[in-house]
Design a protein around this nucleic acid. Sequence first.
DNA 1: GCTATTTAGTTCGCGCCACGAACTAATAGG
DNA 2: CCTATTAGTTCGTGGCGCGAACTAAATAGC
Lengths: 404, 404
Amino acid sequence: MRKIDLTSFQVATSETARDINRRIVLNLIRSQQPVSRADLARNSGLQRSTVSAIAEQLIDERWVTEGANGHTARGRRPRFLHLNKERVGIIGINIRPATTTVALADLDAHFVAQESLPTAATPQQFIAELVPRIRKLIKMRPEIACEGIGVSLPGRVDLASQRLVFAPNLGWSDFDLKTPLEKATGMSVALENAANSCALAEIWFGRHAQGVRNLVAITVSEGIGVGLILNHQLVQGSTGMAGEFGHTAIVPDGLECKCGNRGCWELYASNSAAVRYYVEAASSVRTGRNGVRPAGQVPTFDDLLRLTEQGDPKAEEAIRQMADYLGRGIAVLVTGLAPDVIVVIGEITRAWKQIGSVIAEAVKRHSYTRAGTRIVPADPLSQPRLRGTIALVLQKHFGAPSVA
Amino acid sequence: MRKIDLTSFQVATSETARDINRRIVLNLIRSQQPVSRADLARNSGLQRSTVSAIAEQLIDERWVTEGANGHTARGRRPRFLHLNKERVGIIGINIRPATTTVALADLDAHFVAQESLPTAATPQQFIAELVPRIRKLIKMRPEIACEGIGVSLPGRVDLASQRLVFAPNLGWSDFDLKTPLEKATGMSVALENAANSCALAEIWFGRHAQGVRNLVAITVSEGIGVGLILNHQLVQGSTGMAGEFGHTAIVPDGLECKCGNRGCWELYASNSAAVRYYVEAASSVRTGRNGVRPAGQVPTFDDLLRLTEQGDPKAEEAIRQMADYLGRGIAVLVTGLAPDVIVVIGEITRAWKQIGSVIAEAVKRHSYTRAGTRIVPADPLSQPRLRGTIALVLQKHFGAPSVA
DNA sequence: GCTATTTAGTTCGCGCCACGAACTAATAGG
DNA sequence: CCTATTAGTTCGTGGCGCGAACTAAATAGC
C-alpha cells in the first residue's frame, strides 16, 4: 500500500473512473489480442455495456481496430478487437559511447526502421547530426504518426530538471538534451539512463515479465548499471541517481575507481575487468616477473568471447573470474531486494552457457534469501536499451493512471 | 509511472472517485488539523461543494469532528475540522527476543496504554500469554473501539501465506501467528518484519518524512535489518524477504555467518560486533599474547555505551569501528538506492554525537551519488518498531486507494 | 449604526460514468 | 422452424464532481 504524497497528488474527477477502466481495457487488449468485448468483460469484471462503451471510444480514437469474427461452440460470433499498431510511432534513440542508434517503432514495440551513426564528441554536434536522421526516419513512413521520442543514454538524468548531469563515458558534461531536441522535432522527449531503460524494456516486453512485481536489470559493458523495477514501478531515487550499484564496494579498500570510491563492483565484474584478468594472466606467463607486456596486444572483450568459444583456457578463466564477481554482486541484490527476476544484459550473455552456472553458484554461496530469484540473460536480439525507450513513451498511454 | 498488473487489478466503479478524494481529504485533515473546509478546498483543488459533501460523510462516520471556529481577517469564520482520535483504537505488538510490548494507540498513533511481558519460548505459549494482555488493554479503555492488531517481529513473514517463516533470534520455526490471534481476539492481524515496521513508522509519523519519496530504515541491534520505502511504498520483494542487506557481504570471504554467507554486514556493524571489537582489544592488552581472557567479563552493548559516555578509549574505539562499518554499508544503500533519507534505529543512536560524523565520513568516502541523502538517527522515545505496527493498520484507511 | 466587502459554507442543476436489466443479433443443433 | 446460447447494444438509475448562485457571518469604513 502506498502513502499518499500530500506535496503532489491528483484528485479524482468524474472522468477518472473512465480513465482507469480505459487503461485496463487497453492493456488487456494489448496482451490478449485478438480478443472479443465479451472476453474483455469477463477478464476485467466490468459490465459488457461498459466494455462496449470503452471499446467504441478506443475505436473512435483509433487505438483499437475491429477485425475478423471469432468462433464459439454456440451462439453469435464475437468480433475481435486488435491494437492498432500504426496508431502512433515512437522514435527510440540509444546513445552509446561509440555509436548511436535511431529507430522508429510501432505500438507493439517492433522496429520498422532503424539506423546508426557515430556518437559525436559534443552534445551540440550530436544534436546537429541527429535531427536530420530523425526527420528522415519520420518521412520514410509517413503513414505512422510519431508522437514521442525516448532516449536511452549511458549517464544520469536529473529528475527535476531533466538535464543530462553526468555521462563520463560520453565525455559530455551537464547539458540540456531535452529542450533542443523537442524544439527541433516538435515532439516530446523522455530521457532515461540505459540500465533503467533495460529494466523498462524487460518489464514491458520481456519474456520473463508475466505477473512480475520486482525485476532488476543489470547492464554489463565497460561499467555496470542496475535498473530497478520494484512494486511494478521504476525506482529512480531522490534525484534520479538510484541504481549505481556498479559503484558500491565489493572489495573493501580495493582498486581505486574513477568515482572516488575503492573496490567498486564494476572494477571486478565488467567487460574491462575480464580483459584485465586476461592480460594479467597472459603477461605473467609471457614476460615472466617484470610485468612488462609487448605493446599493442590488448584484446577486446569480443576477442575474449571468441577465444572462450574456441576453448582458450586463459580466456575461459578470465570470463569465469568476471562471472564469479558478477555473481557476488548479484547476490547482494538478491539478498537485499529479493526480486522475482534478475535480467543480465550485455555481450557476456553470449557466453551464458559457460557463465550461467558460475553466476548461479556464486549467488547461491553468497546470498541469503528464500525468494527463489530467477537469473536470466536478456535476448540481445531484442535490443533492450533501444526497446526500453519505447516503453518510456508508451507508459503515458499504458501505465497506471496517476491517482491520489 | 506504474505498470498495470494484469494478474491482479482493480477496476473503477462510480464510487471510486469518492474513495480517492475522501482519502485525500482525510489525509489533509490528519496533517493540517485543525483545518477549515475552505482551506481543504484550496489545498486539494477540489470544489468547496465537493469538500463539504466529503466532510459531511466523514463526520457522519465519526472519522472527523467539527470543533471551534477559526479566525480570519475578514468574512465569516471557518469551522475547524479535526481528526476524531478516538474513532478507532489499534493494538500494537512489538515482539523482541527477550521482551514483548503490547500497546493501545489512537488514530494519532499516540499510545494510551502499554505494557510488557517476557517473550515466551514457543509461539503457542506466546499466544496463550499474549491474548489475556490484549483483552485487558481493550477493557481498560472501553471508549475506544479497537479495530485491528499490528505486529512487528524480528523475523520474516511470507507474503502469500502470512506465516512467520523465519525468526532465528526468537528460536521459533515456521508458524502461523495470524490465524490463532485473529480467532482469539476477533480482530484482523497484520504482521510485519521489524525493520519494515520502522520504515513505515518513519514515513508515516517521522520528523524527516515530509514529502519524502524514498526512505531507508536501518535497525541496528544484535543484527542489522533494513526496511525500504521506495516510491512512497514498502518494498517487500517477491516473498517478503526484501531488506536482508544485513546479510550481504561487506568483507569478501570474511567471518562466517550463521546465514551461510561470509563477511556479512551485520557481523561487522551490529551491537554484537562492537562488543567483539571491545573484548578483542581489552583481552589483547590484559592477557598478552595467549588470548585467554578472564571469564565472566563480556560487557553488554549497554555497558559499552556507558563506557563511551565516560570517555573510555577502548570502548570509544570499538564504537567508532562499528560506526565505520555501519557507514560502509550505508554507503552501498546511498549509492544503490539514492534515497532522500536514511534513518538509523537502535541503541547506537544514543551515541550519535560521537558516531554521526564517523558514519557521515565513511559514507562520503565510500559512496557515489548526487542524491544528498540525509542520514539521521531515529528518536528512540518514539518507539519506532511499535509505532510502525500502528501504521500497518492505519494504512487501510489512510493509504492510497488500490486502483487499476 | 448602517452599508459595502469579504470569506465560509450550502444548494442545485448539469454532465460523466458504471451498473444492470431488457433488448436485438447471430449462430448451432434438433 | 424452433430453441438454446452467446455477443453485443440500449436505456433508465444512481453516484459523483463541477461550478454558478445563494445564504451566513464577519470586518472596515463612513
